[in-house]
């Protein structure tokens, strides 16, 4: 696993808006292949590196130059954790749609959309703030000391 350096916090917010749009399209169309692609994207960002996120590159080349520079930086660890939370929901959603359990697919995709929208609109990462609770029920989240 690579270690990412801190990032301009507006990049992940832009990325979260794009994720929100993608998940909304999935809900409206039931196009599970798009959700599968989003699941792979979540996995790459969470488990390999945030640099693999294409929206990050779009932000850097197309949007950041038009904004006033900021010295504010956000640590990468919360962002990657958020991608991991997204990955779990998107994976369940993809399996649901692909196996005909459409209701499961919709519920999981809907929950992922809620998380992405809160992140985009308010900069809020539910999974990160509730890490202590999640860890109590998912021991695998424990980090090596």
């Amino acid at each position: 696993m690579l270690k990412d350096s801190p990032v301009d916090p507006r990049g992940p917010r832009f990325s979260a808006w794009m994720t929100t749009v993608i998940l909304a399209i999935v809900l409206l169309t039931g196009w599970w292949r798009l959700l599968a692609a989003q699941t792979v994207l979540f996995a790459m960002c969470a488990f390999i590196s945030l640099k693999l996120n294409p929206w990050g590159h779009v932000y850097r080349y197309a949007i950041q130059p038009r904004l006033t520079p900021t010295t504010e930086r956000e640590e990468a660890a919360p962002l990657r954790f958020a991608q991991g939370v997204g990955f779990v929901f998107a994976l369940i959603g993809t399996l649901g749609y692909a196996t005909g359990l459409t209701t499961l697919g919709m519920v999981a995709t809907g929950l992922a959309l809620v998380a992405a929208l809160l992140n985009a609109a308010l900069g809020l990462c539910l999974g990160c703030e509730m890490y202590l609770v999640l860890r109590r029920y998912v021991p695998a989240l424990a980090r090596p000391q």
Binding site: L28, T29, L113, L117, L124, L126
Partner: peptide, 23 residues
Amino acid sequence: MTGVWALLGALAVAGAIGVLLKV
């Protein structure tokens, strides 16, 4: 059609959580 309701539902839930946490 169900997808539209699912989307509206998700937006409503996100809005509710957002307001609750802001408060």
